[in-house]
Design a protein around this nucleic acid. Structure first.
Lengths: 188, 188
DNA sequence: CTCCAAAGTGACACATGTGTCAATTATTAA
DNA sequence: TTAATAATTGACACATGTGTCACTTTGGAG
């Protein structure tokens, strides 16, 4: 029983993402979010105690979405296919890197937030494990430079999507340039 | 005449930088800065009307420091020397990239801020021009991949210093890995 | 139709940041 | 020593965000 909800948690997460990318962590407020959802600010407190708890919960949701895609990487076969697939999903969810940076600003203001942060950290480790298999496959197949530390290779790949496209290159050219540079660098 | 100042503008900029990197744009307040400088908050208003004006002024100061180093690049001779020099000064001032990102959040709240932003934009263009000569030299000498757009090469180089060193690799190994990856990518 | 539980509302008390300005303090020229 | 001047201070009025909670609305079970 009880009346219908005016918004779903998924809707709430979608507006949370949009707002976080628009205004950043500090400027993100329940007032703003409530306005987007067309509800009173007080309503959101029925679901989350404060913005830190909300943001950490959102990041877990977001990371889950990404992990679901990422886990399919092993089914792709050899390194070349896995690499292509990885770049595809990274570009598809290119906001992840920026959101992770925003997450670093979150304060641990209550128990649930602490639990969320701990859970999120665990997910990140899983992600890196999943990807370290990918890197090791690349090294085994002789496709990746064995002298580079695994974590640097992964950091490099993820960081690359943050390269600004100030000069308005067409998206396809932007993507292809990045893949080219990640693969073979800027030199001839 | 008049009493001595309790702080220099340079000191103010140094604390501004430290605070911006610590807490980010939104959380940066005159209260915090005044505390660091051991003065009353009101004092800062004698020098800057608000935080946007202060931050844009600081960024111009910071960019000037960087440009002074950067302009020496042409004296370094051939592409190889210029490339080594560029990577050196980028790592030396690796906070620049992050500060530029923070600057994007600045609001245009008064005329001086608008003027500062406009001036800063102009400096950025000068910087890119200076660096485009470098990229073209590299292409002429046959050292840089001619199929990559100049702006993407530059974006790639600058972005690379933001690669996190979560796993605590020694700085030297971190730097060398990045230079290696920027130059030749992650592949063998 | 009535009742109840879930969902939603908005006002209240509090906290923190903003910009201003009259008053205070420190320095030095005369 | 004193007057002029510039730097600094801190209180005031205002704005915006926070967390709470008594009260209202809604919709289905009985």
């Amino acid at each position: 029983m009880g009346r219908d909800r005016k918004f779903s948690i998924t809707e709430l997460y979608e507006h949370t993402q949009a707002l976080l990318l628009e205004v950043g962590y500090e400027a993100f407020t329940f007032s703003l979010l409530a306005e987007r959802l067309n509800v009173a600010r007080g309503t959101i407190y029925k679901y989350f105690e404060n913005k830190d708890e909300l943001i950490t919960a959102f990041m877990i949701y977001e990371m889950n979405q990404f992990m679901q895609k990422l886990e399919q990487i092993e089914e792709k076969g050899d390194f070349e296919r896995q690499f292509t697939y990885l770049m595809e999903i990274i570009f598809e969810r290119s906001e992840i890197q920026e959101l992770i940076n925003i997450t670093k600003q979150v304060n641990t203001t209550n128990e649930k937030t602490a639990a969320n942060q701990s859970y999120f950290k665990n997910m990140s480790i899983n992600m890196y494990t999943c990807l370290q298999n990918f890197v090791q496959l690349g090294k085994q197949e002789g496709k990746l430079n064995p002298s580079l530390p695994d974590t640097m290779i992964l950091g490099f790949i993820f960081q690359s999507v943050a390269i600004p496209n100030h000069f308005q290159l067409p998206r396809e050219q932007w993507v292809q340039s990045i893949i080219q540079m990640v693969s073979n660098g800027i030199r001839t």
